[in-house]
């Protein structure tokens, strides 16, 4: 929620006016020169309402959400495992880190075709792809967080007779929650991007599938309707991961 004093009414009014002016411009342009390339705002609105009620958005949106969330969860689990191991054991980090960096240099969307070929057109190939993307983004976050943990804390725990396992579980694991939550700010939108790319490449459902399908039958009204939904989706996702990061606070921040 934005604090009420930040946005005085005139600004909000001007913002609404600007948005209304854009839509009016769009409507005027579409009315003056009707073409299949520029669907009228009313037609797009009607399509959004239609697809909202006949379940098209719900069905395909659910598929994309599942792909993103499952990928993020799987990616986060492996990111914590590997990130903590590498952050704790220096020799492991020196061995693996350059290799991980090189693997991370590959644009992971390039894996969409092979993953689709191996795992099929369903959601498994998309979850694999969003999972591997989320893993890399979160892994580097967890690793840099684990490296930043005050070494005196580990030393104290060692003096107190804690084993490696106990130090990892009592010190590193609780702290990693925050690194994951802040890492989600980048990994969340990126997993949505990856899922949609894979859906466009080859799929049977999802918002990317819906966009591709609309373009293939030159249904520009449908395409713009899905794009507007996707933008709203993105705004909601950004707000969600932003609030997650803020919720975690700095209570268990390292150092």
């Amino acid at each position: 929620m934005t604090p009420p004093d930040r946005r005085s009414p005139p600004i909000l009014l001007l913002q609404c006016a600007a948005a209304a002016a854009l839509v009016a411009l769009w409507a005027a342009r579409a009315a003056a020169a009707p073409s299949m390339w520029l669907p009228a705002p009313l037609a797009v609105g009607a399509r959004i309402v239609k697809w909202s009620f006949d379940g098209t958005f719900a069905r395909n949106g659910a598929v994309t959400v599942i792909e993103c969330v499952a990928g993020l969860v799987i990616g986060a689990i492996f990111a914590v495992l590997y990130g903590l191991a590498l952050g704790y054991y220096g020799w492991l980090r020196r061995a693996i880190y350059p290799v991980a960096l090189l693997c991370y240099s590959v644009p992971l969307v390039a894996l969409a075709p092979p993953f689709t070929a191996v795992f099929g057109l369903g959601i498994v190939s998309k979850i694999a792809l969003t999972g591997i993307t989320a893993f890399f983004l979160l892994f580097f976050n967890v690793l840099s967080g684990a490296e930043a943990i005050d070494r005196r804390l580990t030393a104290i725990l060692q003096v107190m007779g804690a084993s490696d396992r106990e130090i990892l579980r009592k010190l590193f694991l609780p702290a990693s929650r925050e690194w994951i939550l802040t890492g989600l700010r980048v990994a969340g939108p990126f997993s949505l991007l990856t899922a949609i790319t894979a859906e466009i490449w080859g799929s049977m459902a999802g918002l990317g599938f819906l966009v591709k399908n609309a373009v293939e039958v030159t249904d520009m009204t449908g395409m713009v309707a899905v794009l507007i939904l996707l933008a709203l989706f993105g705004v909601a996702l950004n707000a969600l991961v932003g609030s997650l990061g803020r919720l975690s606070g700095s209570g268990n921040a390292p150092s």
Binding site: L192, I196, V215, L230, A231, G234, V235
Partner: peptide, 26 residues
Amino acid sequence: ARITMPLVVAANSLPKVALIPFFIFT
């Protein structure tokens, strides 16, 4: 900036890859 920023943020929230089919088509 205060008037246009929400528009920029909304445009930024759209996953740009969703426009690929349109770009290829046009």
